[in-house]
Design a protein around this nucleic acid. Sequence first.
RNA 1: GGUCCAUUCGUCUAGUGGUUAGGACGUCAGGUUUUCAUCCUGGUAACAGGGGUUCGAUUCCCCUAUGGACUACCA
Length: 507
Amino acid sequence: MTDRKVRVRFAPSPTGPLHIGGVRTALYNYLFARKNNGVFILRIEDTDQTRYVSGAEEYIIEALEWAGIKIDEGVREGGPHSPYRQSERKDIYRHYADLLIEKGDAYYAFDTQEELEILRTEHESRGETFNYGCITRMGMCNSLTMSSEEVDARLGSGEHYVVRYRMAEHEDIFFSDIIRGDMVVNTSTLDDKVLFKSDGMPTYHLANIVDDHLMDISHVIRGEEWLPSLPLHVLLYRSFGWISPQFAHLPLLLKPTGKGKLSKRDGDKMGFPVFPLYWPYGETARGYREDGYFPEAFVNMLALLGWNPGTEQEIFTMDELVEAFTIDRVGKSGSRFDPEKARWFNTQYFQMRSTEELASLFMPLVNAKGFLPSDDDLIRVVALVRERAGFVTDLWKESDFFFVAPETYDQEVLRKRWNESSPALIRALLDAVKSIDPFTAENSERIVKDWIGVNGHNTGTVLNLFRLLIVGASRGPHLFDIIGWIGKQETLRRLENGLNHLAQGKS
RNA sequence: GGUCCAUUCGUCUAGUGGUUAGGACGUCAGGUUUUCAUCCUGGUAACAGGGGUUCGAUUCCCCUAUGGACUACCA
């Protein structure tokens, strides 16, 4: 590694919502930049006009912002290399394509897409693959096979053309990747990739190399799907006479079960989000943010998927990730995404939050249910149930009985605890409860337990039935904390309702 | 099909030419909680297979298998 200033970029294509693999790529770039006092750039690669999806760019920016990934230079932030949207840099690429043509490393090709399609299907029917490259290029319609007059005439007439890279013929290309080490590929297996399209836009390969060079990118950290085109990119740097950045190809994220890489549809099929945020357009998809994940947990989970610090630490703040992150500790093989572990990460962060904060996050959900507790009252509820939840969105199902009296009663508990003598027991309990004053959790516990002792009742029977009538099931925090919160009146009301309901049901 | 990449418990992974192959998630069992959950303790479970190299390979090399990516005027 040289002492070159670290500058990295995340360069998504705005063709839809970013999925978590993309967020992880952005995260690793960001961590690497921060760790090395470098710069993190967001560049929008919108050279494919046909796949452009409006809203996608905004989504990408919002997703990174939510995750806490801060952009130093980009479409909104600006920077010394503006613009950062490739469609606005269109004029730049033309010049570099021309440069390559002058050098003889690229050429014009006039073959139409239809002609190429026919060739490809022909070859396929013979079980072969058509390769526009050193073996076939002299049989095609391009500036290598026609006179310069004819080329000029075609160009002058406005005929559509593309610019192709003229791949070296039989040469071993040596290159290396920070994660995978040294590799070698022979150019005879490579083809003459299109660099410049007939619509006047560059392809990824050209635009990417030109921009990375112009923007002085020091390290290219991207998904493994780009590994096969790395030799081309290395060659392109060589043709231009530029110093190439260092490369790191990240392993892919795989489906939780079955085969293949994680795809945008897996979330819906398997019941977990594959997107950071909700995507409202077209085929809607849910996001981690809307599912109630804390961004810190989301980032922590993603960071550990394919990277590890070499220690047993698993919970990291962003600052700690920055401190610990090195590319050489990124793994080589693909990681299966595990929704269970993602939930576990969120639970860790949930449990670290203060009760006050959890209550304030929970308040809107309670209000939406039609209840308007005071801040203090809700804090008391959250304090009692927080340890059994991992998400703010779990809190309601753990605490609904504070707000809503039961309408049904758990059959299993009934079967076990309810018998002929139960109605009389509950009536007696009602009287005991009526006498409680003040009606605090501590005082009611003391009085009820005294009453049980004095009357020789079975503690388990009384308390379980009591809970059943208050909660409706065998769940929830300490019973006396619950009745202390709902108050004497509500407690008596639930006991009476339950008694009426069950006494009738039994008779 | 071709090219390239990968392969340690079910999953994420640590690790080493000689280790009881470690941790986490999940799971199972016990304890705590007169409920449920939490929590605590413990258990289960892995070096893909075959050849080498070596006194010794999970570790180094080769082959096979399996998985993955790429193979567009998409990125």
